[in-house]
Design a protein around this nucleic acid. Structure first.
Lengths: 242, 242
DNA sequence: CGCCGGTCTTATAATAGACATAAAACACAT
DNA sequence: ATGTGTTTTATGTCTATTATAAGACCGGCG
């Protein structure tokens, strides 16, 4: 097989794309096992090693999780280990504590120019806006404002949010079929205004961490825009530079 | 080869350790090429594929860089692409701009309890303390206070810092033989005090990003402790969650 | 109830050939 | 003779296949 076409990609990468299609189409759901390497090799008519290399990359990207002797599983945000991949707030002493999400409001709106640009939709398109806080050990440390595209999250309501136990991304995944893959965050320091200060129980003007996040699903499609204000008096944002 | 010993590790990982030794001993220096896969395979008496897997992991950890058709090279902080791995400050519009480091002072001191704990040395051991600022496009946006263990950086002087062109980690690497591998950062929002406000040209009380970093070399040995204050009015800290 | 093999799974190792790169060798016009 | 563009070749990594080992699980059997 010669390298002729300008759109050439190696065999294992084509297999990788086929597996991603299976994930995206819902053929294999989060938490479930995908077929074994030999079975996939047979289905796609390639060797086991080629399937293996495709799965290796998908595992490195956290889309799949390998377990020797058991199988390869679709990763899920219901897995507790996935929580702190997207919430990096830890206590002074380094202990990571579970967060409790408390939804405040959820309403329908139309996208402004900025939200439309970030979410790659048209201004005026339907969106869902929600606000919520995160509580750590009884203290309210984060207030989030979240923008979602209406076509994917049209049925989102405050009651759904209040009822659901588990992380927000776990809800996205199980109820809306939206799998969060990666995100980028822009972090800066800002002063608390009246309303956020009240919610976080700090004086107006207190320095807060402003975390603006854009979240992506398959094929780099943005599906969430959020802005969080973090109170970092007793907790901090932990980042690993590797 | 059976799995008998409790300290068993697969062949490719033993090879990986041997390569790390070569890096650590200075047998192969930053920027240089290491021997080819077949040559290493011959030297260690294993197959090329096994060497390949070892190098794959080292490349994933950014210790090596592969270039098809050319060879595999020891990664270096002199490489401009490495700069923004450890400095994630970017402009509003997303453009990344080169930083200019301006050293302010450099003096010898003795480790206090906190510095000793972080750097894993004894209280009272010799350390080097330095302060410097980072300028982006003419504006002073970062002020850093940096603590280094004296045994590694004993010959550090203000003149060395002022003379050297290039990043600090590039200096560590070329002049002190200390290769920075990874780091962890604790980020919080704080208010500017008088002195830092003066340096950054902002009013006292302005919210600043406090970035406390511990930096590690081979075998997870801490070799730098620093605290930076970032002015995030026109720039922000960019983070990728993957 | 324990344990001992089958039989699934992924993990490891070896091998062969394809592709990438750059420098040496060469042909040829000036 | 010399400069220039092309071909060859040597030497890297990359891709693909195959074989075997190790981990997990289940059911039969003592």
């Amino acid at each position: 097989m010669a390298h002729e076409s300008p759109t050439f990609s190696p065999l294992y990468r084509q297999i990788k794309d086929l597996i991603i299609q299976g994930l995206q189409s819902g053929e294999w759901r989060p938490g479930e096992a995908i077929p074994s390497e030999v079975e996939l090799a047979h289905r796609f008519n390639v060797s086991q090693g080629t399937v293996r290399k495709a799965i290796d990359e998908l595992a490195a990207e956290h889309l799949l999780v390998r377990k020797q002797g058991k199988g390869t599983f679709v990763s899920s945000h219901a897995d507790p280990r996935a929580f702190f991949r997207f919430l990096r707030l830890v206590r002074q002493d380094g202990q990571i504590e579970p967060a409790q999400s408390v939804p405040l409001e959820c309403l329908r709106a139309r996208a402004g120019v900025e939200a439309a640009r970030v979410l790659e939709i048209q201004p005026g398109d339907a969106i869902v806006v929600m606000r919520r806080v995160l509580r750590f050990g009884g203290k309210t440390l984060v207030v989030d404002e979240i923008y979602l595209p209406g076509d994917l999250f049209g049925s989102m309501t405050l009651e759904v949010l209040q009822t659901y136990q588990g992380s927000l991304y776990s809800l996205f995944e199980s109820r809306f079929g939206v799998r969060i893959i990666r995100a980028t965050e822009k972090i800066r320091a800002v002063a608390a205004d009246r309303s956020s200060g009240d919610i976080l129980a700090v004086p107006e003007g207190t320095p807060l961490l402003s975390v603006e996040r854009v979240t992506y699903t398959y094929q780099d499609r943005p599906v969430e825009w959020r802005r969080g204000l973090y109170c970092t008096n007793e907790y901090f944002y932990l980042n690993e530079l590797t």
